[in-house]
Computed example of a mutant assay.
Amino acid sequence: MASDGLKPAGPFSDAEREAIYRAIHERRDVRGQFLPDTIDEDVLQRLLQAAHAAPSVGLSQPWNFILVRSPGLRQDIRAAFEVANDEARAMFSGEKRELYSQLKLAGITEAPVNLCVTCDRTRGGRVVLGRTHNRDTDLYSTVCAVQNLWLAARAEGIGVGWVSIFRDADLRRILGIPDHVVPVAYLCLGHVRELYDIPELEARGWGDRNELANLIFEERWGVR
């Protein structure tokens, strides 16, 4: 390695590159396929290290990871989810409400490990390099950590489900999250029996994947 900390860059081998793209395309949001088997602590630490290796604005590393394993605490979280889920269901109508009622949207008590990923908005001080003109870049950084963990989990054979249907105040109260910290993602982690070939919401008819070509513009918005 050169004295300035740089080293030669180049593409991965064909097998390495294929594995990266496989993890990306086979990643799934897991709801109902969790097994009760515990996750080996070495595997869990690798997943958290992958998350911690994410890029962050100004190297602020604003994330924290709250591991939730006790059955009682997960029951409290599930109760909070069910209240919010009933509210969410009522926001849809007709066929959408009927389909919503059939979807399993959380594996909180089935997955052996729950993980709340947070963003400490004071991390790095009052002025953070790269955050001077867009305050939300710390939140974006935390989401990068979530994606890192998700892809690493797929490579480890661990399923991940992101549960977003909560009242913010409920999650803060149950997990003791202070006001200056934002709960960004509540994740369910565990070994899985199987995965959908395509995203479950697509398979169940909730929506269709957009064609990439329809989402690409050249130089300016709307120019194809």
Rank of each mutant, 00 (worst) to 15 (best):
G5D: 01
S13A: 02
D14L: 12
A15E: 06
Y21I: 06
E26Y: 08
G32Y: 15
D40M: 03
D42P: 06
V43I: 13
Q45F: 11
A50I: 00
P55Q: 09
G58M: 00
F65S: 01
L67H: 00
R74M: 07
A84S: 06
A84V: 01
N85F: 05
A88S: 14
M91P: 05
M91C: 12
F92A: 08
S93N: 14
G94M: 07
Y100F: 07
S101A: 13
Q102R: 11
Q102F: 07
A106E: 13
C116W: 02
V117W: 01
R121G: 00
R123E: 01
G124T: 03
G125M: 09
L129N: 07
L129C: 06
H133R: 10
L139F: 00
C144K: 04
A155T: 03
V160C: 04
I165S: 04
I177N: 02
P178M: 11
H180W: 04
V181K: 08
P183E: 00
L189W: 08
R193F: 10
I198S: 06
E202H: 08
W206Y: 13
W206T: 14
W206L: 15
G207N: 14
G207L: 15
D208G: 15
L212E: 15
F217P: 08
E219S: 09
R224V: 05
